[in-house]
């Protein structure tokens, strides 16, 4: 499944970059995340609880931030396993400045899913991913607002 979209955040790229690279922030803003454990400079183990229409499951696996070009771009790689199916994603993320204080985040990638996730959840995958991405960015927005207020 293709995963692509754009989102505008009210903060400059370096600030957005810092937030995205901070495991504590990520643990707050990733929807459904119940555990995020740093295993290397840019690798994490994670547990995510996600509901996809008729199927829901707890995904365990790893996240990796790759091809880091601070503060412009990186690739998020995820290998997540669950009883309802496995997901394998590679998403390229670009940060471009808009004026002085805003950033446009563009993401584009591919998610491969298998098992029940594919056979039962595929129909709602698009919708659920949209909701989750929106949630992620609105959480990120709130997080950025908090840090600028403090």
């Amino acid at each position: 499944m293709q995963l692509a979209g754009k989102y505008v955040l009210h903060a400059a790229p370096p600030k957005v970059w810092a937030a995205l690279m901070n495991p504590d922030t990520l643990a707050h803003i990733v929807p459904g995340i119940s555990r995020l454990e740093k295993t290397g400079d840019h690798t994490f183990n994670s547990i995510l609880d996600i509901k996809l229409g008729p199927v829901s499951g707890s995904f365990t696996g790893n996240l990796q931030l790759d091809d880091l070009q601070e503060p412009n771009a990186f690739t998020l790689k995820a290998q997540q396993n669950s009883k309802i199916g496995n997901a394998n994603a590679a998403v390229k993320i670009n940060l471009s400045p808009i004026g002085d204080s805003d950033t446009e985040i563009a993401f584009d990638g591919d998610v491969k899913i298998s098992g029940m996730l594919a056979s039962l959840g595929q129909r709602v995958m698009g919708g659920v991913s949209n909701t989750l991405t929106k949630q992620f960015f609105s959480n990120l927005e709130k997080e950025l607002a908090k840090t600028s207020a403090s």
Partner: peptide
């Protein structure tokens, strides 16, 4: 089937 060989409509919802 999708290109990964997953049957994507394996229920009466689909």
């Amino acid at each position: 089937y999708d290109d990964n060989g997953q049957l994507t409509n394996a229920s009466y919802m689909d």
